[in-house]
């Protein structure tokens, strides 16, 4: 088991070292000659204005919350998938019950329009395949 995580560690160390070396080399050899124009944020040739930190739409937060819940669900799927063959039908139905309970929540957020994007405009669902009334 440690061997697998050792491989992860080696990858981590290599990637960190790689970035550090590349940046170090380029810092050594490039000419440093900054001017106001060079330091401006590149925005496709346009002159940038305002801050780059905008306030995000609150809907992103809701989507992230829903994502987090189903991510935890997926974490529970892994140990189940490993032993599914050895235990058999009982494990299968147990997971079906598990998923069915969570499917209620999925149906709830779908029905309430949390997953469709343009509902705040007041024109209803943009998802044509689902006609929530």
């Amino acid at each position: 088991m440690y061997l697998h995580f050792g491989a992860v560690l080696v990858f981590l160390l290599f990637s960190v070292a790689f970035v550090a070396i590349i940046y170090g080399i380029s810092a050594l050899f490039r000419p440093a000659n900054p001017s106001a124009e060079k330091l401006t944020t590149y925005e496709c040739g346009e002159i940038p204005f305002g801050g780059s930190w905008i306030q995000f739409n609150l809907r992103y937060y809701l989507i992230a919350l829903v994502f987090l819940i189903f991510e935890v669900e997926v974490v529970f799927l892994y140990p189940w998938a490993v032993v599914l063959r050895t235990i058999g039908a009982f494990a299968f139905w147990e997971m079906i019950v598990f998923l069915a309970i969570l499917l209620v929540g999925f149906a709830y957020v779908w029905r309430k329009g949390d997953l469709s994007w343009f509902t705040p405009s007041g024109s209803g669902h943009t998802d044509a395949t689902f006609s929530g009334k």
Partner: peptide
């Protein structure tokens, strides 16, 4: 609750 009212 703090988002604009949903289309429903």
């Amino acid at each position: 609750s703090r988002a604009p009212k949903s289309g429903n």
